[in-house]
């Protein structure tokens, strides 16, 4: 997981003013300079967007629809694969555990940190943030050891849970929570930093007023702070959801180190897509699976973005 970063939110004042205009483009021409200049500035980005954003999607659609058995054949054969349902079950379970616990814990931790003195809070934030440097293969290798009861610093917890050896810990039923823990470990710190920053932007007067009104720390947190970071929570959910559906490196690397015990090469849907492409040489079906994932990710993201009124771009 890479470091999350912030959705930028422009000021409400500006948007309101802009929104009042009927057709803004023409009258903004003067302050905005000439049109050709605008094209010039965005040209390189637009090229990359076309080549690497739009073209692959179009190509994926084309591939998915040009399977040997007709338009929808790639989709039907992907859906009827005996590994399809389990891969999606895995990912669903992982997402529910991860998103719920991450949302709850990040918010709880950041609210707690915000009650501490600036210096102590900064120290904690830093310690939480550091694992963000380990992503992908690196973090999986570290967790290989954390999950081995005979070598792990957390061995006592694993023993207490009744796991005597690595194979017990990575039992199939445990994998979704294990990947959720890994994702939380690398990602949560970044979000905590971001949300802490957002909390710091709350005007002091507002918090003081709440104090004078007699609300305690908990009430202030719930009634004032929480609503003010709502946008960030939605943003965290959007990015996490989109990334989470794509789980690939964690099960891949864990599988190659665990001697194949309990974790298949098609544990997640993205792995299954890759498996079908490489082991059956069927790129059409793989493209169909990728599209399913993409559409799923975009739908949920769109829902959250619209319902959460996240991106106020003007």
């Amino acid at each position: 997981m890479s470091i999350p970063s912030a959705p930028a939110v422009t000021s409400g004042r500006k948007s309101a003013a802009r929104g009042g205009r009927a057709a803004g483009t023409r009258e903004q021409l003067a302050p905005g300079g000439s049109r050709s200049a605008g094209y010039f500035f965005v040209a390189l980005y637009v090229l990359l967007l076309l080549l690497l954003g739009v073209a692959p999607v179009v190509y994926a659609v084309y591939l998915a629809l040009s399977g040997s058995g007709g338009l929808t054949s790639s989709f039907t054969s992907a859906f009827s694969d005996f590994r399809f349902a389990s891969a999606f079950e895995h990912i669903l379970e992982f997402m529910v555990i991860w998103l719920v616990s991450q949302t709850f814990l990040v918010v709880a931790l950041v609210l707690m940190l915000h009650n501490l003195s600036q210096r102590v809070g900064a120290a904690f934030r830093f310690l939480f943030y550091i694992p963000g440097a380990l992503a992908g293969a690196a973090s999986v290798i570290v967790w290989l050891f954390m999950l081995d009861p005979t070598a792990s610093p957390f061995g006592f917890i694993l023993h207490w849970l009744g796991y005597a050896q690595f194979d017990n810990t990575v039992a199939p039923g445990n994998l979704p929570p294990i990947f959720a823990i890994m994702a939380f470990w690398t990602g949560a710190g970044g979000w905590i930093v971001v949300m802490y920053g957002a909390l710091n932007n709350i005007p002091h007067e507002l918090l003081e007023a709440a104090q004078i009104d007699g609300s305690n720390a908990f009430q202030t947190a719930m009634q004032i702070k929480l609503p003010l970071i709502r946008k960030w929570i939605v943003y965290m959910l959007v990015l996490s959801f989109a990334g989470g559906t794509q789980l690939f490196v964690e099960p891949t690397v864990l599988g190659s180190a665990a001697l194949g015990v309990g974790i298949s090469k098609y544990w997640s849907p993205n792995q299954l897509a890759w498996f079908i492409a490489s082991e059956y040489d069927n790129f059409n079906e793989a493209a169909a699976l990728s599209l399913v994932l993409l559409v799923l990710g975009l739908m949920v993201a769109a829902l959250l973005v619209w319902r959460g009124r996240l991106f106020e771009v003007e």
């Binding site: 409400g12 948007s15 309101a16 929104g19 094209y39 040209a43 637009v46 090229l47 967007l49 076309l50 080549l51 739009v54 073209a55 769109a302 973005v305 619209w306 009124r309 996240l310 991106f311 106020e312 771009v313 003007e314």
Partner: peptide, 29 residues
Amino acid sequence: MRSLIHRKLWRGHSLWAMLTVLVVAGASV
């Protein structure tokens, strides 16, 4: 506050102009 995506996303004339530019640029690259 009005979200851009929330608003009329696909405004006719600018869409076509944009697409033309994009396609030409993409083809040349």
